[in-house]
Design a protein around this nucleic acid. Structure first.
Lengths: 137, 137
DNA sequence: TTATCAACTTGCTTTTTGCAAGTTCATTTT
DNA sequence: AAAATGAACTTGCAAAAAGCAAGTTGATAA
């Protein structure tokens, strides 16, 4: 089973999810779009984790093909494109919330960012609703 | 950022989670241990998605190193080993539940397995509690 | 009209994955 | 007691994916 072997599908819901976002980068891209208010290719490229440009382009294409995000011209800056999550993409909010809570409990590293963890712990519904409504920080 | 580049860590809770289970196989292994009642290497090898043996060994080692599962001799069959999720591993139950719900909503394929989806929709707390308590089906 | 910026694409190297065959050690069979 | 089997891996090699750096394209700004 490789990422691009789209023929292989056990039918398992976990496997379905992984075939779409089960890699090192997809959920970080979705995080940037969902909770960091990022919208352009350049902003995604300069995120916290330094994805390489060809991989970013590939993943954006993949996520667009699978219906998690859309790409369109920025009406206010015609040479730029705006990436936005679709409902299918925004529906990952609860998955993201649970990963955040899990990491908040189990990552004991000194430099762990607790801001997001606190936000989800403090008001999980608000955290998810803001993503569902496409609100930017 | 590669899987084995353990030095690179943005501190983000999503990135932390992905550094542990952000690949194509880890969550399927955890699924087998958590909800399919699988316990041995051989059973994991013959799962629905046909992981190759070297990758399985590698991932089990990784998950053991990161504290998500334990490996010990089967007291009733001394030539076999039993793999079991730790609390850290079982704490992924809500993540799994949310992925199942997401896939249940968005995977419209004919052959999608709905059994697990129905189980989580029907009684999510029971689904998670059974994993938390390490109950087998 | 030249320079710059945003969004990629291309070519190449390194790393990871996948496949098949082989190894080790504990039991079971003969 | 010796040979066969079963469980859990390990090893070697080919294929795929990721990462890096430089180059391309098309829209604005100088």
């Amino acid at each position: 089973m490789t990422r691009n072997n789209q023929n292989y599908d056990s039918g398992c819901p976990i496997a379905y999810g992984l075939s779409i976002f089960g890699d090192q980068w997809s959920l970080l891209i979705i995080r940037d779009l969902a909770i960091k208010g990022v919208r352009t290719y350049g902003e995604l490229l300069n995120g916290w984790e330094q994805i390489s440009t060809n991989i970013l382009a590939q993943r954006l294409k993949h996520l667009e093909d699978r219906g998690l995000l859309t790409k369109e011209r920025d009406p206010e800056n015609w040479r730029s494109f705006v990436y936005q999550l679709t409902e299918k993409g925004r529906d990952l909010a609860p998955v993201i919330a649970e990963i955040v809570l899990w990491s908040g409990k189990h990552n004991t590293a000194e430099h762990a960012m607790t801001e997001t963890v606190d936000k989800v712990r403090g008001n999980r519904k608000q955290f998810e609703d803001r993503i569902r409504n496409g609100e930017r920080p």
